[in-house]
């Protein structure tokens, strides 16, 4: 069961660097997939840490379904963070709290295409496979909210595209409120219902774009290219340049936008 997230007047400062986030207001409907884009250091990852409760020292409020309650939130990090001494299955078992544990894990490994590797140790997996285990782990307790902190940023362009497609498939199979922090505009466009662009530090919403293109999406779809131009303009506005577009991405073959 997915939850709605309400982020109201949230502000976060660090003693060494001052304010990094906010004031930030954001309403996210249940089961929607929202991507957050913005320059480095604008507080995107901090926002996820505040939502999951890894950092509780902030102003403003974060509500789930309108209440200040403990929601079931899971998170996939930039690196897979698998426990290297546990097999793929054991990594999932560690966090799994469902009654039919083994069945749930089998289903998820099937979903991410790694059933065959359930006994493998993390060191025997490629980067893409390890990140898929991390995605499976994030889904294992059927969370109300799933947070993804640049989960594919360390992967090569081809693997990244495949995992973006996998992510879309997973979200369609199990609609969960998902918040994806990314530097990759194409990734945001292919996967999301909405793209939120944050300003440079301290991060505030400067653009909130709905992506009304049906999934699965063609990366060369003219509507996506148009939206990409709009996002680039927003990022250019906040960053002073259009160079915030990430390093090699899935859309590198697309015509240059804006």
């Amino acid at each position: 069961m997915s939850a709605a997230i309400s982020i109201r007047d949230v502000r976060k400062s660090f003693p060494e660097v001052g304010p990094v986030l906010g004031p930030l207001d954001l309403e996210i409907e249940p089961a929607t997939f929202v991507s957050v884009l913005g320059p480095s250091g604008c507080g995107k990852s901090t926002l996820l840490r505040l939502i999951i409760g890894l950092d509780t020292d902030h102003a403003g409020e974060i509500l789930f379904d309108g209440e200040a309650r403990d929601a079931s939130v899971s998170m996939a990090f930039q690196e897979p963070r698998l426990l290297p001494w546990r097999s793929v299955r054991a990594n999932l078992q560690l966090v799994c709290e469902t009654a039919d544990r083994e069945q749930t894990i089998d289903g998820l490994l099937e979903l991410v295409g790694l059933h065959e590797f359930h006994d493998a140790l993390p060191k025997q997996l490629s980067g893409g496979m390890a990140q898929r285990v991390s995605l499976a782990r994030a889904l294992v307790n059927e969370p109300e909210v799933m947070l993804l902190d640049e989960p594919f940023s360390a992967l090569d362009a081809m693997t990244r595209m495949r995992l973006q497609d996998a992510l879309v498939h997973i979200h369609q199979a199990r609609p969960t409120t998902t918040l994806l922090v990314t530097h990759d505009i194409d990734e945001a466009l292919v996967t999301s219902d909405r793209v939120v662009v944050l300003a440079d530090r301290p991060g505030r919403v400067v653009e909130d774009i709905a992506i009304a293109v049906p999934r699965p999406r063609d990366r060369t779809d003219a509507r996506l290219i148009e939206l990409k131009a709009r996002i680039l303009r927003a990022l250019g506005t906040v960053d002073g340049t259009a160079e915030t577009t990430p390093a090699p991405s899935s859309a590198s073959a697309e015509p240059a936008a804006a």
Partner: peptide, 17 residues
């Protein structure tokens, strides 16, 4: 599109054994 076909299962790293 199935998840298995859409991801890189077994492409980059074969089964360990």
């Amino acid at each position: 599109m199935s998840a298995t076909s859409s991801v890189d299962a077994g492409r980059s790293t074969p089964a360990p054994s």
